[in-house]
Write a protein that binds this DNA or RNA. Structure first.
Lengths: 214, 214
DNA sequence: CTATGTGAACAGCTTCACAGCG
DNA sequence: CGCTGTGAAGCTGTTCACATAG
């Protein structure tokens, strides 16, 4: 039975990995999978897989394992990606444009419906590449957020502009920010933040590669 | 004194955050910082900051705090970024090109010195934008890795090509892979891996935004 | 016999609280 | 005094081992 409280944060992170792997199994027409198989594909123990899933309900079938399509549906429901979520982007620079062209979002239940930039020269311009979309001024953000019921936004502006842009996103009604700028955003507790800093990931690898013995 | 063993993985992750914040303080010409101030800027407790740093040595000065330039130097040394590290990129698609144009690497001690792609049509082409660089065939990777003493590589190819590309990187001598493809790479224990999956980060935000009360 | 779900044991990380130094 | 460094305590997450179900 679902332990509605006491859900470890790491378990939620792994839930996304389970979903990704389950979808891979599903495309290979696997119908069931055991906790051991799922764990092996993700370098986790079987017990870990079972404990994580047990946080949210009883999805397994003793002697059988987990039915792949069923579990996919359940995990999507838990993560809130069983319906399409509208997402916006602030910052149409190099990274922002790469994100617009990225086709991986739709597959996972996200649709990029609006792009904003501070630079007046970019406003109104259509971005190139696939999924082209019109760039709007920041002033239109509150209305667009309301219109499309957007809750999550991606922030891809230079470090110096990030804090202010984040504040404008919060004012516009954004509840979760995926931040690509190399700064720690100071936002209220009512807003969730997640950061991706490319240089930091390289640093971590650098440490691991230097530190481990040959 | 440095506890040369028993270094918590989370402490190493935070080390990169400390460095980033210290550099921000340094640009504001702050000369010293206390564990409390450093922690506040990163939403961590003062004790956490002290414990983390104490894993690697005694850098603080009682009554004063930490001297900013001194600590920056120490942390860089620990992370292995006190010298420039050469990095390669596999995959010159949308994301790859955005990474090539990204100026944030150099500031943190990384230099992108080579780009590889499987697509014969792209070979030899110079990428556009800043930091333009020639695209090489995968067959040249082993020689280039040796020539530039490259240890870390960025993998930015489609999911279906990622595993094979990763294996070629390992054969070429790469020791750490930063993977942007939405798959779990199966690599030997002698190779370090780190993954960035944009859809997964959005999923996590989606969960947090849905799950928390209004 | 296979594979889940789960209490109990274990390990690891964080917080606390304070001695000690400048 | 202010602030670090650190043992001890507390807490959270993981692994183990087994009862249970198909």
């Amino acid at each position: 039975m679902a332990k509605s409280e006491n859900i470890p944060v790491p378990a939620v992170r792994r839930l996304s990995l389970y979903l990704r792997q389950l979808e891979a199994f599903n495309e290979d027409n696997r119908t069931t999978v055991s906790s051991r198989e799922l764990g092996e594909a993700l370098a986790l123990s079987d017990a870990q897989v079972r404990k994580d899933l047990a946080c949210f309900g009883q999805f397994g079938h003793p002697g059988i394992g987990y039915r792949v399509p069923e579990l996919i549906q359940q995990v999507r429901r838990i993560l809130g990606t069983d319906r399409i979520s509208h997402v916006l982007l602030v910052g149409a620079g190099n990274l922002g444009r790469a994100l617009i062209a990225f086709r991986g979002f739709a597959k996972r239940g996200f649709e990029l419906v609006a792009v904003f930039d501070k630079d007046a020269a970019k406003i109104g311009e259509m971005t190139g590449g696939p999924n082209a979309i019109r760039i709007q001024p920041l002033s239109e953000m509150p209305a667009t957020v309301r219109k499309h019921a957007i809750r999550v936004g991606i922030l891809a502006v230079p470090a110096a502009a990030a804090q202010q842009a984040a504040e404008e996103m919060v004012v516009a009604g954004i509840r979760g920010i995926l931040n690509f700028a190399p700064v720690t955003l100071q936002v209220g507790a009512e807003v969730e933040g997640a950061s991706v800093d490319l240089a930091i990931h390289l640093e971590q690898l650098s440490f691991q590669v230097s530190g481990s013995p040959a």
